[in-house]
Computed example of a mutant assay.
Amino acid sequence: MTHIRSHLLAALAVAGFFMSAPAFAQSSACQEGQKILQERQGLIQQINKLTEGGKKKQIDPRSACSIFTKLVANGSAGEKWMTENKDWCQIPDQVVEGFSKDHKQSQTIKGNACQAAAKMAEMEKRAKQQAQQAQQGGMAGKMGGGLTGTLSIPKGAL
């Protein structure tokens, strides 16, 4: 979890830099970058909500996968934007490098979260199938042992 928090802090620092850069407001291209970073900030806030409570709180992999998928898409757009507008918007090389590093870390975390979500879905599917099989087996037992091909005839006076 500490690597997620450091990732979030670095992303917020990048966003803070862009919002205070004087050349940022001079161009519509620079304003586009500001929109990307504001969206990123909102996604990071969602991740913070998932991780509230520290180490003892269990994080739902499906929620984490969903948010990190959006964060990775945002990071791809951010990297592309930075590459295209680095000079025009006066973005320092270290900011671009930090953003790229954070983006790669987001991709790794997304992969782990989505893999855990897929395993969780598979386990739930198996549990549901087993419950259905057990329920069907229970009904067969109540109806005389299921379909065995034999019919028991009552013994006694007819």
Rank of each mutant, 00 (worst) to 15 (best):
M1P: 07
M1T: 07
M1F: 13
H3A: 06
I4W: 10
I4V: 13
L8W: 03
L8H: 15
A10V: 15
A10I: 06
A13P: 04
A15M: 08
G16Q: 02
G16A: 07
G16C: 03
F17T: 09
A21F: 01
F24I: 04
F24K: 09
Q26G: 03
S28K: 09
C30H: 01
G33H: 04
Q34I: 08
K35A: 06
I36W: 02
L37A: 07
L37T: 02
Q38A: 10
E39L: 11
R40G: 09
R40S: 13
Q41S: 12
Q41A: 10
G42A: 13
G42H: 08
L43H: 01
L43N: 02
I44P: 00
I44L: 14
I44H: 02
Q45P: 00
Q46T: 12
I47L: 15
N48Q: 13
L50R: 05
E52G: 05
K57I: 12
K57R: 10
Q58A: 11
Q58N: 08
Q58C: 05
I59Q: 09
I59Y: 04
P61E: 04
A64L: 12
S66G: 13
S66P: 03
I67W: 06
V72C: 08
V72H: 03
V72T: 13
A73R: 10
N74V: 15
S76Q: 12
G78W: 15
G78A: 15
G78P: 05
K80I: 10
W81C: 05
M82F: 03
E84W: 02
N85W: 05
K86D: 07
D87Y: 06
W88G: 08
W88D: 14
C89F: 08
Q90F: 06
I91W: 05
I91R: 02
P92I: 03
D93I: 12
V95M: 08
V95W: 07
V96M: 14
E97W: 04
E97H: 05
G98E: 11
K101G: 01
K101C: 01
D102P: 00
H103W: 10
H103I: 03
K104A: 08
Q105V: 08
Q107E: 12
Q107K: 11
I109L: 13
I109S: 02
K110M: 15
K110D: 03
N112C: 01
C114W: 04
Q115A: 12
Q115T: 10
A118D: 13
K119W: 01
A121Q: 12
A121L: 02
E122Q: 12
M123Y: 00
E124I: 00
R126G: 00
A127N: 13
A127C: 00
A127Q: 15
K128I: 02
K128T: 05
A134M: 15
G137L: 13
G138F: 15
G138R: 12
A140H: 11
A140I: 01
G141M: 14
G141I: 06
K142W: 11
M143C: 05
G146Y: 11
L147Q: 12
K155W: 04
